[in-house]
Amino acid sequence: MSGSMSTPTSSPTSNSGPVVRPPASAMTRYSAMEALAALLTDELVVLSLGGAVDEWYTAAPHLREASLFQQQLGCVTPQALGLALGLPHRRVVSLDTDGGLLFNLGVLATLGNEQPGNLLVVVWDNERYQSIGGPRTHTSSGTVDLAAIARGAGVVHASTVRDVEAFAAACAAGLADQAAPHVVVAKVDTSPEGHAAAGHPVVRRKHSDGREDTYRFVRHVEATEGVTIMGPSEHN
């Protein structure tokens, strides 16, 4: 395993009042995305909702066709698992979130039982529901350790990382391992202030809906796998 174990960096806060909390770590999600994108070539990516969609669209332009942009909690890693089981020779990356994984922790038990060796799960853990303005998730308390839950579910290669070097090393290890799934919980700063302070570019908005995203992704899989998924009708 790479990286350090989770150490609480923030105190439990009330659900009431303004949402002002320190970032989950000094590592911006965008910098981690850049590091991961540099490791990927012909992988397939499934990713979750919220700010991660536009950031990945901007940080990994060479993977836009190979990325399925989803808008749903709890489905990203199960979809990536199905994709990985359907294409066992192809590396699949799930870009999940703390809120998304917490929505269906059971999938970790399924990963533990199925042991898909071609699946890397990255969890962007910013300790908040960023897409609706930042209310805290359960990981913000510092008592909930997603990597430990994953290990307890049988995903033995699960770690929490807080800097880009450790993140890149953990992802590289997961991509290189053909025998077992890896889970990398990346504590990240997703604040606009952190993004700007790091000198990251302005994030471009992705201009497409779920159906267009599905068609684009499927056409990429068809082209790279030599298969027909959404084919012609019997008659025109």
Partner: peptide, 15 residues
């Protein structure tokens, strides 16, 4: 729900 999402992922693989 997890099972449905797994099946959705399989669809995307061509299986």
């Amino acid at each position: 729900g997890e099972g449905a999402a797994i099946c959705g992922g399989v669809f995307l693989s061509g299986k």
